[in-house]
């Protein structure tokens, strides 16, 4: 299974990953539309992104969230009713939403962010 691995100690909070993600998926450089978020801390930065743990699969009332054959947790937007339980229940706080859309969005380990990371704080790895 492909997963975005995080090494927060290497993160310099340049936010290039957020730009890469939102540009890839929403054609817009906007951290509020990124599936990866960098929270700048005093000691260490925090990289928030999906671990593909799948807890959201179990709480979705309409089974719009499933794990694909590669192990990636994906949202079927045509089934989703926009309840955002998955957003409130994500243990990583890595299920995101934006008021412009009625469905949530999440990291599918596409790797575009990792390509832009100058310090290799994030990378796509097989588990």
């Amino acid at each position: 299974m492909k997963v975005l691995k995080r090494k927060p100690e290497l993160c310099i909070a340049c936010h290039a990953c957020e730009s890469a993600c939102s540009t890839t998926w929403f054609k817009e450089d906007n951290a509020e539309k990124s599936c990866i978020r960098i929270k700048e801390g005093e000691k260490e930065n925090v990289i928030v992104s999906c671990t593909q743990c799948g807890e959201c699969i179990d709480v979705c009332p309409v089974q719009a969230i499933t794990r694909d054959k590669n192990g990636i947790v994906r949202i079927n937007k045509s089934i989703c009713v926009g309840c955002f339980i998955c957003v409130g229940f994500c243990p990583e706080l890595a299920m995101f939403m934006n008021d412009e859309y009625i469905e949530p969005f999440k990291c599918v380990a596409c790797g575009q962010c990792a390509k832009q990371c100058p310090t290799e704080a994030i990378s796509i790895e097989q588990e």
Partner: peptide, 20 residues
Amino acid sequence: GNLNNPADQSSINKAGIKLH
């Protein structure tokens, strides 16, 4: 999630996610 055509979807989303 928006069939009520609400005046302000954002405030509904915010309250809902907070309670979730």
